[in-house]
């Protein structure tokens, strides 16, 4: 006999009291910072004036969206956002997985720990400091530029050339995040049943074979889930770093949606317009999320929902 919904909830609650307890702060966060502000999205359809407030500002329908689509730089920003996102997926996403796999094979614990600490550390350096370092190293007489000169390049300021922007951006992002991002994979690795390795060893599997047939498959669910999550944020390229690294000479490759919104919304104080662009942004993200989730399920991997 199937119990009533209320009864099931009650039982579930009794069983998982502490899980619910842990969930409370998350719930509060979601309500306060994710659901409540959604009300403000309606200013995307208004000509918002702070002094009139959300209730008093005049409605303009889709005018703000039309303004964005009319702007030649909007499309460029959109293209650059996709480019940077895809490059990050292709180049930065696999590196933490690799690092986790390698660390997993290291049996000398002090060495493993040292490597881990060293790779985490950049994560705790503020972006503005990282970018300050990059700017200095990329100057004409800076470290990176001089290394290039050593290999036969011309002395130049690397940040003023569009062709160097993506490598600089992607490589520094990998450096910043590789250690931190590998934590979750290490956690997943720790969850793989040790008996499988034992059995494999008895069957005569080499370490490479163990890695290939046990460790890697053990990681795949985590990888596919993170990949789906990543695709759900495909248009959210962090603006801080780009804002700190770009300048007019590299706008053509570096200006992304978020920096575009920053210039329009915060510098020109055009709140309605930037909200409209952000809303568009979210819509695209949702499409990506749904599609990639679907694909992930089709391929036999676990989806998010």
């Amino acid at each position: 006999m199937k119990k009533s919904f209320a009864a099931r909830v009650k039982r579930d609650f009794q069983r998982h009291k502490f899980k619910y307890l842990i969930f409370i702060p998350v719930l509060v966060y979601l309500i306060l910072f994710c659901y409540k502000p959604m009300y403000g999205v309606i200013i995307a359809f208004q000509k918002f004036r702070p002094s009139l407030g959300i209730d008093g500002s005049p409605w303009v329908g889709l005018e703000q969206f039309a303004r964005a689509f009319d702007d030649p730089y909007f499309w460029r920003a959109l293209r650059n956002t996709f480019t940077i996102s895809l490059l990050s997926l292709v180049f930065s996403f696999p590196v933490p997985v690799l690092l986790a796999l390698l660390l997993n094979e290291v049996k000398v614990s002090w060495f493993k720990r040292t490597i881990q600490t060293l790779t985490y550390m950049p994560h705790f350096i503020a972006t503005v400091v990282v970018c300050g370092m990059i700017t200095v190293y990329c100057q004409t007489n800076g470290l990176f530029s001089q290394i290039l000169v050593f290999f036969g390049g011309e002395p130049t300021n690397l940040l003023t050339h569009s062709k160097y922007f993506y490598p600089i951006y992607i490589l520094s992002t990998i450096w910043q995040n590789v250690g931190w991002d590998s934590i979750i994979f290490l956690a997943a690795l720790a969850g793989i049943d040790q008996e499988q390795y034992e059995a494999a060893r008895i069957d005569g599997a080499s370490r490479m074979q163990q890695m290939r047939y046990i460790t890697f498959p053990g990681l795949v669910p985590t990888i596919s889930m993170l990949l789906v999550l990543k695709l759900g944020k495909v248009l959210n390229v962090g603006y801080e770093k780009i804002l700190l690294l770009y300048q007019p000479l590299t706008y053509d490759v570096a200006d992304v949606i978020s920096t575009y919104v920053y210039r329009k919304g915060l510098i020109d104080a055009d709140y309605s317009f930037s909200t409209a662009v952000n809303l568009f942004n979210s819509a695209v993200n949702i499409v990506f999320l749904l599609v990639s989730n679907r694909i992930s399920k089709k391929l036999g991997q676990s989806g998010l929902f």
């Binding site: 730089y73 007019p248 706008y251 200006d255 210039r263």
Partner: peptide, 24 residues
């Protein structure tokens, strides 16, 4: 003001990009 903001945003981006390219 709305028209001005839209046009100015495009123009100023274009001008600063091109200015640096002309100099370099």
């Amino acid at each position: 003001q709305t028209k001005y903001t839209d046009i100015k945003a495009v123009l100023s981006t274009y001008v600063s990009e091109m200015a640096l390219k002309f100099v370099t």
